[in-house]
Design a protein around this nucleic acid. Structure first.
Length: 491
RNA sequence: CGGGGCGUGGCGCAGUCCGGUUAGCGCACCUGCUUUGGGAGCAGGGGGCCGCAGGUUCGAAUCCUGCCGCCCCGACCA
């Protein structure tokens, strides 16, 4: 049994908090709301980064880096954008400290006040569009497709490791296009790239949709999103892709000369996913024993644990283990041999389960006699004994099967937690007793959306894409509705 | 910022109401022996400005005042 990990059924959020710490993913920092991402957690994030980065480049994007500090005045150039971010910005007002007069420590030097205060970026649209103005003159400069990996700061009141931290890591793509159609296409393309990543690598099914006005990114014309479902029935927005229209082009005066001699504002997009994905990954698949990582994102896919009484046994096991690791390496499978004699096998079993290593291979004296190993898979806890010769191909098969099976399990759970309702009473019942996504007709007004939120805490997660219009009447107001939308309580 | 809870070895806690031995327990850590197919056992050992600052008292982890920090619940948010 995992020591001290609360059960999901008893206290889901406690379970999550403990798991993040016990699995060595992250911990709190001295600064409230910030986190230290530990090596193991960062290794998972690095895998995500590497895969996404490749996908971005394959779709024609280049990486660049823009500064963390933004002149305060930039933020105020786009009206909705200011509105959206002003209340959660960290501000740099001074550039120097000095020894306190009474030598009691350091104080801010009042002499060193900045002429113009700087904000720590909550997102980079403003600096980037200010730069794009310099970079874009002609249709020949378009499209401009840039991505950056960065940290951003949003001064949140309540934070949770990975899910909502004051500082977080992310990537933000910012593109500029000559036509509206092309920008819209880019927005949807990146939504699809994210969707492919989340489904194929994180093994999490998503619902693609458009945000309602109240949930839309400040400054965007349309915000597209992918919504995922966690095991406690709450939804989590895994990524967003925004069609910015000409909002930022106008705010920062970014125009280009068209082929026929005209002068027009460019069309923009921006899109991002963050370390929040780590939270989704953890909450979606893990169990009461600890983390369950999809093989494609596990920093180490296989761990081999020797069971030995003496040096001779260990040596013999070592030879077998090294052989297996070599074979796995040829199949591009990462494996570790944990031959520490400071921990017992049972301790190691529990530890690697806590950390979500997909496949565990145990080799002991019995196996040496029989030419076998014991293989255990993390997601099902299933154990099998197999001959040493067939280990490598079998592991390859199991890893791929596991990736698939974890996805299917999440998909089944998700599908079982989409409930269509026709009345507000039903809506409240489902929300209270079952959770998950609730599909219902909505009259399209912010007023109704807000009232439902106030009464139930549930919000419209998205207006689904790829679902034909189906007229009906709003569950709250009874007014006509053109289609059903997804509601849920959300992270 | 409102409501609630909590600050005691690295971690988790007891002790605080009702002041008085040397501040205790579990885990972790160190040493030794025995162990090793699911978080080993025994023996020995190290580690504490009891959140901070004042006050009351012969005497404070314990009572009083002020401050600081953290967690949970709400308002805000990816």
């Amino acid at each position: 049994m995992s020591k001290g990990l609360p059960k999901r059924s008893e206290d889901y959020s406690q379970w999550y908090n403990e798991l993040v710490k016990k699995a060595d993913l992250a911990e709190n920092s001295p600064v409230r709301g910030c986190m230290v991402i530990k090596p193991y957690g960062f290794a998972v994030w690095e895998k995500m980064q590497a895969i996404l980065d490749k996908m971005f480049k394959e779709t024609g994007h280049s990486n660049a880096y823009f500064p963390i500090f933004i002149p305060k005045s930039y933020l105020s150039k786009e009206a909705d954008h200011v509105e959206g971010f002003a209340k959660e910005c960290a501000v740099v007002t001074h550039y120097r400290l000095k020894q306190a007069d009474d030598k009691s420590g350091l104080v801010v030097d009042p002499e060193a006040k900045l002429e113009e205060e700087l904000i720590v970026r909550p997102t980079s649209e403003t600096v980037i569009w200010n730069t794009y103005k310099q970079w874009i003159q002609s249709y020949r400069d378009l499209p401009l497709k840039i991505n950056q990996w960065a940290n951003v700061v949003r001064w949140e009141m309540r934070t949770r490791l990975f899910l909502r931290t004051t500082e977080f890591l992310w990537q933000e793509g910012h593109t500029a296009h000559a036509t509206e159609a092309e920008a819209k296409e880019e927005t949807l393309l990146m939504l699809q790239v994210y969707t492919d990543f989340v489904q194929n690598f994180m093994a999490l099914p998503v619902i693609q949709g458009v945000k309602t006005e109240s949930e839309r990114f400040a400054g965007a014309v349309d915000t597209y999103c992918m919504e995922t479902l966690m095991q406690d029935g709450k939804a989590l927005q895994a990524g967003t892709s925004h069609f910015l229209g000409q909002n930022f082009a106008k705010a920062f005066d970014v125009k280009f000369a068209t082929r026929d001699g005209g002068l027009e504002y460019v069309w923009g997009t921006s899109w991002g996913v963050s370390t929040r994905l780590m939270g989704a990954l953890i909450m979606a698949h893990s169990d009461d024993k600890g983390l369950v990582l999809p093989p494609r994102l596990a920093p180490k896919q296989v761990v081999i644990i020797p069971i030995f009484k003496n040096e001779d046994e260990l040596e013999a096991i070592d030879a077998v283990a090294r052989g297996i690791i070599g074979q796995l390496k040829e199949l591009n499978i990462t494996a570790d041999f944990d031959d520490r004699d400071t921990q017992k096998p049972g301790w190691k079993f529990a530890e690697y389960e806590l950390k979500g290593v997909p496949v565990r291979i145990a080799i002991g004296p019995r196996d040496l006699d029989n030419g076998t190993v014991e293989l255990a898979r993390r997601d099902t806890s299933e154990k099998i004994s197999l001959s040493q010769q067939e280990v490598a191909p079998k592991v390859k098969y199991i890893l791929s099967e596991m990736q698939d099976s974890i996805y299917k399990k999440a998909l089944k759970f998700r599908d079982e937690h989409i409930t269509t309702v026709n009345t507000f009473d039903e809506f409240k019942q489902v929300l209270k007793n079952k959770g998950g996504f609730i599909k219902a007709h909505w009259d399209g007004t912010a007023e109704t959306e807000m009232r439902i939120k106030e009464e139930t805490k549930a919000t419209i997660r998205c207006i689904p894409l790829n679902q034909g219009a189906k007229a009906g009447s709003c569950i709250y107001s009874g007014k006509p509705s053109v289609q059903q939308v997804y509601f849920a309580k959300a992270y």
